[in-house]
Design a protein around this nucleic acid. Structure first.
Lengths: 247, 247
DNA sequence: GCGTGTCTGTGTGCTGGGGCACATAAGCCG
DNA sequence: CGGCTTATGTGCCCCAGCACACAGACACGC
């Protein structure tokens, strides 16, 4: 029986050679992630790591005054829960599902054991973590210096790269909370992009019409993050995707 | 002959048990770091890792338009060059000396080998890296939501924690480039703090008069970063500091 | 002790985004 | 089909921080 779900949809899992993958496969459990669901809260010890396939998770921080901002996003290119193998077990931020979908999860203890084997899996996890750091650093710079329109373009592109379609199921309110700005600001910025013919949207749906146009309106931050991800985790498949090869 | 310089002044090195430390000591070289000196530039492959003792290094990003911002700072609590053991070898940011002083440096190749031994040193480096991520994430949030005065307080406190004195040798211009704001903004914010009796300054010198007062004017970000650092790297000395015990 | 470069203080106007209030409209569900 | 919920559009005023311009003032070298 072949399902539409497959661990290979996650790039980290998909990059593992057969031997490494087989050692892990038994510990991967497919779980649905609902929009708005929290995978962990600040200071809460992580139970599982999540390897998203179709879902997107936002690493989010909420200030004492109730304002919030995304510090990085995680989709099929990475894993939620790096603090498990980094040794901290928890973080001051939370992880919230930004786009509903699926992920494969693994017991935290198991992940730590696999990490400690110091094989290719460890190497991939560490390189991914560095890419995640780049994303955080770039978010800091972007928050400081770039306009809302530029930031919205960056964010749309990063999200789009993690989706199979060109449509985001997402209200302006939600986008605003990701970028840490007012909802009205998104209305205005999205209106500009729609008038420019780059996107079109209706209640809770945003469609990207002109990806190249978006890229030219985005700040450099998108390209920096993307380039660094490709550099650190080249899209090499070490393993043939045997589970989906059926004629 | 006992020098005023000692690798134990760096918390990561100081936390190593004797056996681990002795294996490393021969590869540590004391180097002076001058103000403004760059330890590496974007995309440049790192040759060395630096364990600061009295120096402070700023991880810095310069945008295409020439604007700049610090994404994190590194002092005697950490190490410059985590991308060596994370596997990326380089980063899109640069590392600039923010406060002159000294650091112990180690060949990149040697660091990678020591890391791969998977001992306590690796564990310390990974936990430190997680603390660094927290700092980056918090910088992103802070840039988004907190006022310049709050950010200045946060930054002064973080810097102060890495120094033996309560005086920073630093012009407003330099502080501005760290926070990624205009110099005039620092003049105004620092003026407020001086009028409030928290600091006093003259050309290129800033003295902290009331640390507690600064803390109460800072945003939560300082406390979050500090607390996370202490949690991840409790100030346990595994080794007695034999080199400085002389009656 | 004097000149000079650098650092700091201040002013004016401008703009992006925040807070708030409210109008409008789209989708949903009975 | 009709009403209700919830997303979106707009207008208002306000303020922080930017740009640019310039004045004072301290520090250092000669």
């Amino acid at each position: 029986m072949s399902s539409i779900h497959n661990p290979n949809q996650n790039h980290l899992l998909g990059a593992l050679p057969t031997a490494e993958f087989d050692a892990l496969a038994a510990y991967l459990e497919l779980v649905p992630l609902r929009l708005g669901e929290s995978l962990y809260e600040p200071g809460e010890k992580l139970q599982h790591a999540y390897f998203p396939t179709t879902a997107i998770v936002s690493l989010h921080y909420v200030t004492e005054s109730g304002a919030s901002a995304e510090t990085a996003g995680v989709g099929n290119e990475g894993v939620v829960g790096v603090s498990l193998f980094m040794g901290g077990e928890t973080t001051p931020s939370s992880a919230v599902v930004q786009t509903a979908g699926h992920a494969y999860r693994m017991e935290g203890q198991r992940l730590k054991e696999e990490f400690s084997r110091a094989g290719l899996f460890q190497r991939l996890l560490l390189r991914y973590t560095q890419a995640l750091m780049t994303q955080m650093a770039q978010t800091a710079v972007c928050n400081r210096h770039h306009s809302l329109v530029q930031q919205l373009c960056r964010w749309l592109l990063l999200t789009l790269d993690r989706l199979p379609t060109n449509e985001l199921i997402m209200t302006q309110e939600l986008v605003a909370s990701m970028l840490g700005v007012r909802r009205e600001g998104i209305t205005e910025a999205a209106g500009k992009l729609q008038r420019a013919g780059l996107i079109s949207y209706r209640r809770g749906h945003i469609s990207v019409l002109d990806r190249t146009g978006l890229e030219s309106h985005a700040c450099e931050c998108y390209a920096v993050v993307k380039k660094e991800l490709i550099r650190l985790l080249p899209d090499v498949k070490y393993r043939q995707d045997s589970t989906t090869t059926n004629a």
